[in-house]
């Protein structure tokens, strides 16, 4: 499979001192979805911001390596030019314009396009997300978490991008909503011919839709591969994902023991939690 976006051995430093990415390489397949997996603070968002050249506002800089899009280096490009060339980022936490209406948010997504008429694009987004259509005149800040994520994805579609970078779309959403969102992403990838790079902590869900995955730990890629191989890889299971059935069962058991101990002899409500490292969704 050919890659539309290639990140080649990039290093990123914040404040000229904090070395956060220590050589990250990854490829986003054309018309496919790649996942970038890892826990808190490993450098997923930094990688995505490096691609979109959004590091400057945070006093970060790429000190080594290259980012190539359709074979051309993106280093030093203005963020607006990167968007115009077809790479759109849905930032962590959705980042909707809270005081703008849903429709104004969508219009803002089309900002980089020069064409005048974006009505058909609005209708297309409302087709994918009918709930947004119903709330088009409402301030975005009052949408539910799931609706906000849909609006953020819809806003990306308005730019007619070739590549969408998604930073933790599952964050703070109930599992059923995550499933729904990921299903939409898969459909979009097929119907709209966009490629995606999906940064996620929620590896279990993410692996169900991606064709290729990279696992990150403290600024490095520690494991990579097509998803079916990857799920079997030992590193993944041990270092972070905790996704096999036995593993989960084992953890849940340990959790119960711990809680019992903490709650004392009378005991409290026992609720086994899955995975200790990731966020609860």
């Amino acid at each position: 499979m050919t890659s539309i976006l290639e990140v080649k051995d990039i290093e990123v430093v914040y404040n000229r001192a904090i070395h956060v990415l220590k050589g990250v390489s990854l490829n986003v397949p054309e018309k496919g979805i790649a996942a970038l997996l890892g826990g808190n603070g490993v450098g997923k968002s930094t990688t995505l911001k490096a691609i979109s050249n959004l590091l400057k506002a945070e006093r970060g800089a790429i000190t080594h390596g290259d980012i190539r899009y359709k074979g051309e280096s993106l280093l030093g490009w203005d963020p607006a030019d990167i968007v115009r060339s077809g790479i759109f980022q849905v930032m962590e936490g959705r980042r909707l314009f809270q005081h703008l209406t849903v429709e104004e948010n969508l219009r803002a997504g089309a900002y980089s396009r020069r064409v005048g008429d974006i009505k058909p694009d609005l209708e297309r987004v409302y087709n994918y997300f009918p709930r947004l259509g119903e709330r088009r005149a409402q301030k975005a800040g009052y949408l539910s978490g799931g609706e906000q994520q849909m609006a953020a994805i819809g806003r990306a579609l308005m730019a007619r991008p070739k590549v969408i970078l998604l930073d933790e779309p599952s964050m703070g959403l109930a599992p059923i909503l995550v499933t729904e969102i990921f299903e939409i992403l898969r459909v979009l990838c097929e119907e709209e011919n966009v490629s995606m790079l999906l940064a996620e902590q929620n590896a279990h869900m993410a692996l169900s839709i991606v064709s290729e995955a990279y696992v990150m730990e403290s600024g490095r890629i520690i494991s990579q591969g097509a998803t079916n191989e990857l799920t079997k890889t030992d590193i993944v299971r041990k270092s972070y994902l905790g996704m096999t059935e036995e593993d989960n069962a084992h953890r849940a058991y340990r959790q119960i023991l711990l809680q019992k101990r903490a709650a004392g002899p009378r005991g409290g409500t026992l609720r086994p939690t899955l995975g200790t490292k990731g966020r609860t969704t």
């Binding site: 959004l54 963020p79 759109f88 930032m91 980042r95």
Partner: peptide, 9 residues
């Protein structure tokens, strides 16, 4: 920052 991420200069 979000504005910048969608190509608003």
């Amino acid at each position: 920052v979000a504005a910048q991420s969608m190509g608003i200069q």
